[in-house]
Amino acid sequence: MNSEKRQEAPLASSEMARLPVGRLAHDTRREKRGVVMDHQDGFVWLRPEGGGTEWTALPRDVQPLLNVRDRAETLMWARVAHANARSRGEVL
């Protein structure tokens, strides 16, 4: 038996739930946001939102974030709800 400590291997591509390429994601290990660029060899490749050097992350460390369209729509509905509440006199 080998007494060396084994390094934990990334999940095989069939074991991970893949985020689509182009999706905004959060690397929880590095506390960084990035865009999913690729899935290779059990890793997720991410690039910073504004461009820059890509990095790899384990799939279990990557969480999906709302994409720009979803964020904009969420903000729009929040503004509409606030405007409606203001018109009813519920908020200033």
Rank of each mutant, 00 (worst) to 15 (best):
W77K: 14
E73G: 14
T53P: 00
E73Y: 09
N67S: 06
V80M: 06
A9D: 07
P64L: 03
M76P: 00
G22A: 01
L65K: 04
T28D: 07
V36S: 00
L19K: 01
V91M: 10
A83E: 07
T56K: 10
S3H: 15
L19D: 06
A81I: 00
T53C: 05
K5Q: 14
V68S: 12
E90Y: 11
L19P: 01
V35C: 05
Q7F: 08
A25K: 02
V68I: 11
A78V: 09
E15F: 06
A25T: 04
A85M: 12
A57W: 05
G42H: 09
K5H: 15
A72N: 11
S14Q: 04
V44H: 01
A9Y: 06
V62P: 02
L19V: 03
R47I: 03
P59V: 04
V91R: 15
R69M: 04
R47C: 09
V62N: 01
V62Y: 02
F43T: 03
P59Q: 12
A25H: 00
R18P: 07
W55C: 04
R29C: 09
L19R: 03
A72E: 14
R69K: 12
V35G: 00
L75D: 13
M76N: 09
G42N: 05
P48N: 02
L92V: 12
H82A: 09
L65C: 08
G42V: 02
N84P: 00
L24H: 10
E54L: 03
E31F: 10
G52A: 09
M37Q: 11
P59Y: 11
L66V: 01
R6L: 11
Q40P: 03
R88C: 13
V35N: 00
Q63A: 08
T74I: 02
R47M: 14
A9M: 13
N2Y: 05
L75C: 12
L66I: 01
R71G: 13
R71T: 04
D41T: 03
G42A: 06
K5T: 15
A85V: 04
R6D: 06
R18L: 07
G51C: 02
W55F: 04
E73N: 10
A9R: 12
M1I: 12
R33T: 08
V91W: 10
A81K: 09
R86A: 15
E4Y: 11
L19G: 01
P20V: 10
R79T: 07
